[in-house]
Nucleic acid binder design. Structure first.
Lengths: 214, 214
DNA sequence: AAAAATACCGATTACGCGGTAGGTTTAACA
DNA sequence: TGTTAAACCTACCGCGTAATCGGTATTTTT
């Protein structure tokens, strides 16, 4: 009816989404999301086949559509779920800048154990740069939000006198994001050929040495 | 008949590719390559329409096929051309490491003036991470080659005593490539919001300060 | 001027795609 | 236990796709 698939809810949090039942259904949803992530990771969103995702979980195409009315809805469901997970990582605005940088290294470390997920989001991230891509808004918001979060923490470090005052917090935030994303792409092309964690850790260590005061 | 479109020539350089004639034809080829780059930049390779490229240069689909027998041939032609251009940038293996890093900054600087080209290759680079992508080999070779070139130059710097001996040249090469590619993606998402050149230059300056001896 | 390659086009084909129409079976709940 | 929604399926549709067939007109070379 609406064609946008945005009709889930708007701001409710614990509100049970209308009425929902079957345990089997929830299990299926989970399977579908997993399968879709796999196929998006392999082929990208545009090139992946909605019907092939259905097949992977043993459904017909209309069977899949019963759960996700359009391909876009399925994509958005994957992104939405990622939102919930990633809140906790950069969560506190009360984190010290050193702790934040450590947390970033840990994120990279953790990512090496879930190459599938990393691949999915790296592919979608890049693909979302193309015209009218349905994930463009999500990735745009995400980069804005992460960037803001990083630069605020760095800025607090500057104001508290722990970081050299001539550092550009916003530029440094962009630099960190770029390095992480760039490394991911290199790593995805040849996971065994480069040690993503070691490289990123070395980079961050140098960065800390460069900007720390005292 | 061969279906691969690889039948142009194999190693000849000045050898006129069999026999070629019309000036009009060469002009058309040029238009086609430009149009294709534009559309690949907008929509990616997979999602771009071969026929739409034909239309943009005022040809029917069979008319386009006269010049490039398949869509893959067109893609490879674009990549091939880029090869010729990019040789000169990192050309000499007799370049000093400082000169090389300066050259990288200049490349980034120059790239800000050709966002279309940057976009094309950034999009294709990311897209080539998907399964069976026709550009995968090209980008794989490219990253290998650039990486090797960078790390060799850095290694020479180490051996000549200009760079600290505890530096990992290969890791640093990967880091540089990651930073450039990551920055490009961030920049493409919001060209006016970030100063790619300033960020990269600041990064390189810190890097030099960190690894230089004496 | 003759021969031959180049530079195209209209019509068509085979196929995969996302999505719909209209149903039947299965399971939850009162 | 009856009602109702969830959980699916078969068959189908319209569309866009890359690519082919079989030409004709133009240009270049001999």
């Amino acid at each position: 009816m609406d064609g946008t698939g945005q009709n889930r809810q708007k701001a409710g949090q614990a509100a049970p989404p209308k009425r929902r039942k079957s345990p089997k259904g929830e299990e299926r949803r989970e399977q579908i999301l997993q399968a879709a992530m796999r196929q998006f990771a392999d082929d990208g969103y545009q090139n992946a086949s909605f019907a092939a995702i259905a097949q992977e979980v043993g459904l017909s195409l209309p069977g899949l559509i019963h759960y996700f009315p359009t391909k876009v809805d399925l994509l958005l469901a994957i992104l939405e779920r990622r939102d919930l997970e990633s809140v906790k990582v950069l969560g506190g605005p009360d984190l010290s800048w050193r702790a934040l940088l450590s947390a970033l290294v840990e994120v990279v470390q953790a990512n090496t154990h879930i190459p599938g997920v990393v691949r999915t989001f790296a592919i979608l991230n890049a693909e979302s740069l193309t015209r009218d891509h349905p994930a463009a808004g999500w990735f745009g918001n995400r980069v804005r939000s992460v960037s803001l979060s990083l630069s605020q923490t760095l800025q607090r470090g500057i104001e508290s006198g722990e970081i050299r005052p001539d550092v550009d917090a916003r530029a440094l935030a962009a630099e960190l994001i770029s390095m992480m994303d760039g490394l991911q792409m290199l790593w995805l092309r040849a996971p065994d050929a480069i040690d993503m964690v070691a490289i990123f850790r070395a980079y961050v260590d140098r960065l800390i040495a460069d900007i720390a005061l005292g």
